[in-house]
Design a protein around this nucleic acid. Structure first.
Lengths: 205, 205, 205, 205
DNA sequence: AATGAATGAGTCTTCATTCAT
DNA sequence: GATGAATGAAGACTCATTCAT
């Protein structure tokens, strides 16, 4: 009988918004920007018009998804080693970092797939593409720094560090792609960080 | 002054077709299925209408690109070890295979980027997606076979072979993505096959 | 604590309705039929839904506004000379009429602007447009009648009466437009009826 | 058999553009911004899509119409007295100006109706509205200047010049409105400039 | 009675495709 | 064979209207 209270509405709106973001994340991660707003609305099980009460446009919605993923609400997105890890060796820290990132891709592949969608469809001048590339660069720099350190201490194999960085990064990027193609198989046989790290260590033979 | 002969015409047509395919490959590889036919025509420096003299539709054009890439007109696409390699060990043969694939990605990244575009934009039931996935499966099976063999002979580290396969495949897939993002840097620091192969070998420590 | 009586409710409803009409008149007069129901609700400081408790549709609301204006709830809308004026000459009566109409436009320009909005946006077959045109015709006929009378008595200049009618009517219509564009300036320099009436009198030279 | 030449296409495009502008002018003049692009296309007897090859958007089309009208391709739009008129008295020059403007409204009412549509539907901050208002101001200033001059020479009646300006301007504006409501009657009984000018002259009695 | 979230039909706009030349 | 003007169906977006609370 009573109209909804202000607080009720606020809660409703936030829930709706979250629901739309979640549904949109799934469909955009899978189909990229080719996804229609009708698809988004259907995934969220609401009318097309309603999406526009929460996001001004398709682009705004996609942007919200990317920003959410870049700014990394999900805690496992943190790529920099945590304070408690500062005492570990470069190799140990890189192991932890890779481990976390592999795990993140296993838990929430959509976040990473979104990045791929941006990079594989957007114009280079695109604002979002820049943002995603910048974020990627931070990650690459972190890995490079640890590899160089590890090489200095002899933990890692010598050689062009950029080559090693690229191998490691490619591996992670590739896992994101594989997660898109075969989610089940990916989850089951997702490689351990150690496997990836072996690329940085001299083989026994 | 002589009217063109039938053969001349045939040759012209084939050249035109090849020109369109090449231009289309570039723009589709970079921008995905969002690429418009106007973009294709502009890239090929011909009118929009003319594209339709050679390909019945956008879909037909894209299909031709994928089929060309899958059936591997380009010789380096051959993934199965050649006959002369039959005598080598599994490790040697896998090294050669990976080596060839890395090289292929360095030489002609567009072919592989096309596959990524298909997989990241198409519906799973899509005919083309199936074709590309199947081709991927062949490759995966080949790698798996060699890894299992290598494990049997002790060349490769023990453990879940699927995990190792995935690590190797992911690395290659990831290289394709990186080639799209930063072509220059990719070409310069593209990792050697040995780096990737190290994931399959026990580390010295 | 007493429940509202039926009469109270009735009064509340009427007040609400009047409030909506007044707000709607302002925004429709200024922005025309492009005005959204959201604009109306905001102007009336109520929710969108509530407008529909008082008016079945946007069209019904607009119609109510036009009918209110046409039927001339506002007393100054009466265009026919009043009884006490019957003894005056045609010229005197026309002066009084014009005078009243100029004054009306100064006092309540919105009513007249609404008519303009109908005529400039609606289809000719539109019901409302017909109503407004018919009302205009009554006014035109009245003016024409007085002009013809005035010409007969020599009060007004000879010549095509329709031309004179149109000049007078145009002047009044134009004042309505100017009132929309520059309300302040309009109110300050609104011409006297005599100025307009001069069009009907032979110049001294 | 031969493809159209460049020149052919150029001519075709210009003709098409002109055709669209003309059709659009009519429907926008009559129905204002509520006009749909489907209406425009139908009026021009072409498909909806084609309009967009000539004008980027509905707004761009409308803007082109307004700019065309403001910049006044039509020669009769010139409101400033021509050089040859410089020797005439203020009254004579104003007569010529009004005369020209009345004539313009008779010949091409659509141009002036477009201005009315802008002013009666647009937000005040609107770019186009500003442009139209500015153009109106130029006209008002011209009329005012001539009236003041005429008052100084005794040609015109004394009194608040702004009131007289407003009466004259209103009359012209009103004619534009009437032309929209009853085009036929308007053309037949359109008042002469002299009638309007009489508002500026002392009456004989 | 009152709110504002939700719906869906209608409009603007794009783009694959066709067609006159 | 070649061009680019033209078409029309599909997708983004708005807004009058309804409905649960």
């Amino acid at each position: 009988m009573m109209p909804r209270t202000e607080a009720d509405n606020q809660r409703l709106r936030e829930a709706r918004r979250a629901q739309i973001l979640e549904s949109a994340r799934k469909v955009f991660a899978r189909n990229g920007l080719a996804t229609s707003m009708a698809d988004v609305a259907a995934a969220a099980d609401i009318s097309q018009g309603l999406v526009y009460r929460y996001f001004a446009s398709k682009e705004a919605l996609f942007r919200a998804l990317i920003e959410e993923a870049v700014q990394g609400n999900p805690p496992f997105m943190l790529e920099r080693p945590e304070k408690s890890e500062k005492s570990a060796t470069a190799g140990e820290r890189l192991t932890m970092l890779i481990s976390r990132l592999v795990e993140a891709r296993r838990e929430q592949p959509e976040f990473f797939q979104l990045f791929n969608q941006v990079l594989s469809a957007a114009q280079p001048e695109d604002d979002l593409a820049k943002m995603v590339r910048m974020r990627g660069q931070v990650f690459v720099d972190t890995v490079r720094q640890l590899i160089v350190e590890g090489q200095a201490t002899g933990e890692f194999i010598a050689g062009d560090p950029d080559q090693l960085v690229m191998a490691v990064v490619a591996c992670l990027e590739g896992l994101t792609s594989l997660a898109l193609i075969e989610p089940e198989h990916f989850k089951k046989h997702c490689p351990d960080a150690e496997v990836i790290l072996r690329m940085l260590k001299p083989p026994s033979t």
